[in-house]
């Protein structure tokens, strides 16, 4: 049953491209790339039970890990993507190693502070990063093997393939003994340890996978949409994946995609009416914590379909 769910989710994403207008194709490509970020965040928050307030650091590590070498070293896109992943992996291992010495609220604040330091560092080294203003990755640098990823069709399917890989990776991971142990840690950390699991090592690995996926999202975003800027490292971009996962349903495979799409359109529609579109984000967060802490997919699982993974 879960297999057919995954297949139908992915097939609908392919079909949607041919059904909806160009405007929505562009939005959907963006949503899929950002949903990779949410999928990565969900592994740590939804499945392992660790609430990080600093994932923008990993997103930015991927983004700048790809964009800076392209911009300053003239590296090819494929190599740059690998560099983006490597830098996100390294940053998440280092931060994980340090931050996982704390728990609960301290973990939240430590991750927040590291991310803030990273954001400020991007501003401080504005000479290379161009700070808040950011920089554009030229169309000529966004071509791999003759395929121009600045075009909407190519971009859409690149986003789709990357999302599908991330989605299936997590769906597979949580069905393995490793994934079950992460869930066990979320449910009852001390019990997991007293069953003989090395809790710290599992959390660190979860952090590594989560951070690297977030970085992959950042790298893909910079490459497919041709822009890198320090805003993507700000606190707001650490809060957004939390919002997406809370909205969609923490600890569900489908939740991150639903949440990202829902929030994206919520903000998109509200920005037609007001410049204060973040108000919607704030209200959504407050109302969710109050009334639907399980999110959309979580509430569906509780009320309707108990097998939802």
């Amino acid at each position: 049953m879960t297999k057919s769910l995954h297949i139908s989710v992915l097939t609908s994403l392919v079909l949607l491209f041919f059904v909806v207008s160009d405007y929505h194709d562009g939005n959907l490509a963006r949503i899929m790339v950002l949903a990779i970020y949410a999928v990565g965040y969900n592994l740590l928050f939804g499945y392992t039970g660790l609430l990080s307030l600093g994932h923008a650091l990993f997103f930015a590590a991927g983004m700048y890990g790809l964009a800076l070498p392209i911009q300053h070293l003239g590296v090819s896109p494929i190599e740059a993507f690998a560099m983006g992943l490597a830098s996100a992996a390294t940053v998440s291992l280092v931060i994980g190693f340090l931050a996982l010495r704390t728990t609960g609220a301290a973990f939240m604040i430590v991750t927040l502070m590291f991310a803030q330091a990273g954001f400020l560092a991007l501003l401080y080294f504005g000479q290379w990063t161009r700070g808040d203003e950011g920089f554009v990755i030229q169309q000529a640098d966004r071509i791999i093997a003759g395929i121009d990823f600045s075009q909407s069709t190519e971009r859409y399917f690149a986003a789709f393939v990357l999302f599908a890989v991330a989605y299936l990776l997590i769906a597979w991971l949580i069905s393995t003994p490793f994934g079950k142990c992460l869930i066990a840690i979320r449910e009852n950390e001390e019990r997991a340890q007293m069953l003989g699991y090395d809790v710290h090592r599992h959390k660190l690995l979860a952090m590594l996978v989560s951070g690297t996926l977030s970085g992959a999202s950042g790298a893909a975003y910079a490459f497919l949409f041709g822009y890198a800027g320090a805003t993507f490292a700000s606190v707001q971009y650490s809060i957004l994946p939390l919002l997406w996962v809370l909205l969609g349903g923490a600890g569900t495979t489908i939740g991150p995609l639903i949440g990202t799409a829902f929030a994206f359109y919520l903000i998109d529609i509200s920005s037609h009416f007001t410049t204060a579109h973040l108000l919607v984000v704030g209200l959504a967060i407050v109302l969710l914590t109050l009334f639907a802490p399980q999110g959309l997919a979580g509430e569906i699982r509780n009320r309707l379909i108990s097998w939802l993974p």
Binding site: K180, C181, I183, A184, E187, N188, E190, R191, A192, Q193, M194, L195, G196, Y197, D198, V199
Partner: peptide
């Protein structure tokens, strides 16, 4: 602790300590 458990100890808690949202099967399978 986890290494000691790995040597062949088991510990059952005084206050019930299980994985509430997992199935009975999965609890023991872990």
């Amino acid at each position: 602790a986890h290494r000691r458990i790995g040597l062949g100890m088991a510990y059952s808690f005084q206050i019930t300590s299980i994985f509430g949202s997992l199935t009975v099967y999965e609890n023991v399978a872990l």
